[in-house]
Design a protein around this nucleic acid. Structure first.
Lengths: 176, 176
DNA sequence: GTCTATAGATCGATAGAC
DNA sequence: GTCTATCGATCTATAGAC
């Protein structure tokens, strides 16, 4: 719920009065749970997102017994989490304006963990160091960009199609 | 100048007091030039961006005599405009939260024009309909995502590397 | 055109009753 | 814990002198 408000309004655009309205909690209660105010609420949301990706995306990518399965799992989990392109990435949105500076370490950690976990899986699939790194960056960036494009056109199909194409980049036989 | 403020703060995070400080104009002057207030200022900035891309990216892509040159021109213009990954895309940033609804037609037009112009150039290069469309979406989304990734890690090199890889996708001999 | 002054609303945050 | 009341700051926007 909190996360959805920040996703809709952005960090600067989210007001405590809207949070009280949509959560049903008065400001007194909100400041009881979050003495740090709006910033602490947003930090909790970012942590929740990171935890979810750690459990459902990064960790499966790091298990090296069957790396292809981890990659497959990533694409399915990502498609589900972003509701096939109808939901944006909060971390990516926060990265674009000065909100990034407020949550620099969280945002940096999220994308680093993602790229590095995918890079590891690609190497385990047989990719050499450089193509593994570059493909990992290309896939993570491609996902973020597809979310922008899908939302800008209000056309979620753009995201699903993009995921399918990005998945092909992770096939070793198509790598350069 | 106006554009840079909106890029830094986002639409909701941009205040008129900061605009008066950084432009040196009082609020009276600002409302003299922009009776519509902040929204009209942002709309002007979006129009300026659209005009720049129309002249320096979309139009070169649409000239079909030498489509490969148009594509090459796009990558160089984009790298320059986004300052090799140090500057974000205002339209993409606006697309992510509810700012999108306020400027829906401008944002939609920007990305549609970009994808369609690139699609046209790719077809002129010999791409079939479907790969041309999909590659165009992949390149535009990849650029947007690379800007997010580069900014989140404060590492502009990510953007330059991404552009180089996306450029390869526009080579017909590498298309699927 | 540009300024200052200010209106009226809303902001994040706090105080204190219950 | 949850509420209401309210603080001081800041917001967008306007009024009116010059």
């Amino acid at each position: 719920m909190l996360a959805e408000i920040f996703r809709e309004r952005g960090y600067a655009g989210t007001s405590l009065s809207e949070i009280t309205l949509r959560t049903g909690l008065g400001k007194g209660s909100l400041y009881h749970f979050f003495p740090g105010g709006k910033e602490e609420m947003a930090r909790l949301v970012l942590d929740d997102v990171s935890d979810w990706f750690e459990a459902n995306v990064f960790r499966p990518l790091r298990q090296t017994e069957d790396p292809a399965k981890g990659i497959d799992h990533m694409f399915r989990a990502v498609n589900g989490f972003f509701n096939s392109g109808r939901r944006i990435c909060l971390v990516g949105a926060f990265a674009l304006d000065d909100t990034r500076d407020r949550f620099a370490s969280e945002i940096q950690a999220y994308f680093s963990a993602w790229v590095e976990a995918l890079e590891l899986a690609l190497k385990a699939c047989g990719f050499a160091n450089k193509p593994a790194r570059e493909t990992a960056e290309e896939v993570v960036a491609g996902i973020q960009g597809a979310l922008i494009l899908a939302r800008s056109r209000q056309e979620p199909g753009i995201f699903t199609r993009a995921l399918a194409r990005l998945r092909e980049l992770t096939n070793l036989d198509r790598a350069s």
